[in-house]
């Protein structure tokens, strides 16, 4: 004789089990995709600030009495405007996830990539000599 199962409503236990699976899924996503994002650290005479490289933005920074415009675009950071005396920072190649730094000695401005060569990103090297 065929047994017909009763059409039960979901219980609190069902919801908890679903919540556990959801929590597990979220943690899995966090550990597999998350972690330290690609970024640059800007050190000026007022301290250090880190900005993500994957978000386009324009920064207006003052350091050592000089004014700079730093543009983060397409995963690269560059000094586009500067009123410092030598302007070397403006002619420095943009930095990206592969490392490098932009230095303005007169204003004491340092823009440094936090991720080098994709290797440090994976924790494979303690440091990579630029």
């Amino acid at each position: 004789m065929e047994k017909i199962l009763p059409n039960k409503k979901p219980t609190a236990l069902d919801f908890i089990i679903i919540a556990i699976f959801l929590a597990f899924a979220l943690l899995f996503i966090f550990f597999s995709v998350g972690g330290e994002s690609l970024s640059v650290t800007v050190t000026s005479d007022v301290g250090e600030t880190t900005y993500p490289l994957d978000r386009d933005m324009t920064l207006h920074i003052s350091s050592g009495g000089y004014n700079y415009t730093v543009e983060i675009k397409d995963g690269k950071a560059a000094v586009t405007e500067a009123d410092c005396p030598d302007g070397i920072c403006k002619s420095t190649r943009p930095i990206d996830r592969d490392g490098g730094s932009i230095i303005c000695v007169p204003g004491g401005l340092l823009i440094k990539s936090n991720i080098s060569h994709g290797e440090a990103e994976n924790g494979k090297a303690d440091i990579i000599i630029p």
Binding site: D98, G99, G100, S116, H117, G118, E119, A120, K124, A125, D126, I127, I128, I129, P130
Partner: peptide, 18 residues
């Protein structure tokens, strides 16, 4: 030991080794 990467001078996005 410390693992020190040496940048590849021909392609600075890579290393020649450690």
């Amino acid at each position: 030991k410390y693992k020190i990467g040496i940048t590849d001078p021909l392609d600075t996005s890579k290393v020649v080794g450690y």
